[in-house]
Design a protein around this nucleic acid. Structure first.
Lengths: 198, 198
DNA sequence: CGGCTACTATGACAGCGGTCATAGGGCGAG
DNA sequence: CTCGCCCTATGACCGCTGTCATAGTAGCCG
């Protein structure tokens, strides 16, 4: 899995996200990130004077923006946008990866939360911002579909929570069933929120 | 937080679970576990000849049995058992902890998944078993409430997934809102599965 | 050419990790 | 008493980590 982003800096951030989502933050070494990104080791202290913490925070930020950006793409792929359809697409991204590439990776934001929420304030804030941006993107999409404003954000939170939890369980069991179960059960319930008048 | 379980061995397993859920598996040292359990360091290699992997696996197993056991207690606390009521209790346990003790800890099973699912086969199996036992307990409770047999397990998976994801988000944001949102949104939907004839 | 900036290249350092080796106590059995 | 067993105690080892210090190269500007 050769990384071929533009500059070495971007490649390192991207590689960090990849390695974190596979091994966790603590088990991912700086040298490993540089090697994976095919970047010189000396560039680490040049581009990331804030050390590992900065690198991790940027990787989390990148992952959050990536997840939020995917929402718009999922919508574009849907002929008729519905909450359940969007959720199905979000889940599908993971079932596709797991069935094709294997159960090696999880969500880097979740990994950063587990490993650093209690020990690094700045990383915790980066994670919070990532979740917030992602939730906002989903909530906006729900609003556009006709979900009442006051329910858009809670439902977006529910969608992302269910997805994150199902990712954990799927990885643990090496089976996509938790993902498909969550999609099948929650999808219709989400759709029923569209026509709800109150 | 002095640990006062019965034997040193149990105390170490319990302490390991506590530390893992706070700092993650990789950031939790063996010496730290022994110190936290007020157990002699030499006992580590005596009780856990399989090393850290064994200790982590037992901590995960303990956590899984604990979570599964809580389900029965939650049911007993409900005057009239409903799926939404059960879920509300499951969530409540976490909001109570977070509002009283702070957002220091997460779920140890989730932590073990993130940190070890890709690197330790035995730990991944322990995590899988923990999720499986927990899901089974919830599914059994749902069946007893009248949820159709074929939907009991998928719904249990949805409940646990949502809870795990909401724990992540709540820790990240240092706010119980994700937990309350998930409970409020998912509860009624779960209750509607009871009277569903198909 | 010099001077400057951006980036790369290594080597060292101190700290901590899990694990192993070895030996010491406590105590019941014979 | 001695033996054997369970548990404890401690020191050492090696590998790896993040970080720093220092020196090197490339290329642009004047």
């Amino acid at each position: 899995m050769a990384v071929s982003g533009r500059g070495p800096r971007e490649r390192m951030v991207f590689s960090a996200a990849q390695l974190i989502r596979r091994d966790g933050v603590a088990s991912t070494g700086m040298r490993e990130v540089a090697a994976h990104a095919r970047a010189p080791r000396g560039s680490l202290q040049h581009y990331f004077p804030g050390g590992k913490e900065q690198l991790v925070n940027e990787a989390v930020g990148w992952a959050g923006r990536y997840a939020a950006g995917r929402v718009a793409r999922f919508l574009a792929a849907l002929p008729e946008p519905t909450p359940g359809g969007l959720f199905s697409q979000m889940v599908r991204q993971w079932t596709d990866e797991y069935t094709s590439t294997g159960f090696e990776g999880g969500c880097p934001v979740a990994a950063a939360t587990v490993d650093r929420a209690g020990s690094s304030a700045s990383t915790r804030e980066a994670v919070s911002a990532a979740f917030d941006g992602w939730t906002g993107a989903v909530a906006l999409a729900l609003s556009d579909m006709g979900v009442p404003a006051e329910r858009a954000r809670p439902l977006a939170t529910l969608m992302i929570s269910s997805l994150e939890g199902a990712i954990l369980m799927a990885r643990a069991e090496r089976d996509v069933r938790p993902l498909t179960a969550v999609s099948r059960e929650l999808g219709p319930l989400l759709d029923s929120a569209v026509d709800a008048t109150g």
